[in-house]
Amino acid sequence: MANFQVWLVHWLAHAAPPIATFMRSKWGWPMAESIHFLGLSMLVGCVGLFDLRLLGMAKRIPIAALHKLIPWGLLGFAINVTSGSLFLLTEPDQYIYNPSFQFKVLFIMLAGANALLFYATSWGRATADNAIPDAPKAAKLAAAISLSLWIGVIVCGRLLTFFRPGDCPASGPGIIADCTPRMR
């Protein structure tokens, strides 16, 4: 894994030089960060709202009707994958070797898997024409997991700067590098 990380950092650093140049200009990084926070709010606002509904808030709103907000949450996610890539392409070693980033990516993948599982198992029951306003237990569990994971994603994102990777010890990185490996 550590070797793959070294390769990935090298690849990202050379993938799109104009983007890195733009990001290092005076307003490049601040602009991308602002967009990243706007996308975050769209994602949490729409997906989080849907999770709260599944958990029992605003029960008079049909679940299927409120689900029409989800594409806007996904748009927020797409905005953040795009703006997030700009950071990654500019300072790849600050992310790929950063344990906070590694957990952030893990939580995003788990949130994705959790959502797919929700659609595969309880979506049908939660949105059937004769569905009762109270969501099935499995849907509530999925909603609680979703909320927790997205909060975890935000916290890991915020903690990135406090876990900047230093140089690896002479013994080298572990299986997953959480430090910058020395170049041979």
Binding site: L40, C46, A64, L66, K68, L69, W72
Partner: peptide, 27 residues
């Protein structure tokens, strides 16, 4: 501060989206 931002700004945005015509079957 960031989690609170997501909830405050995000939920206000979701309500605004509904007023602007998204998810029209939501009362």
């Amino acid at each position: 501060h960031t989690v609170g931002m997501g909830l405050a700004a995000g939920i206000n945005a979701a309500i605004a989206f509904r007023i602007l015509g998204v998810a029209p079957s939501v009362p």
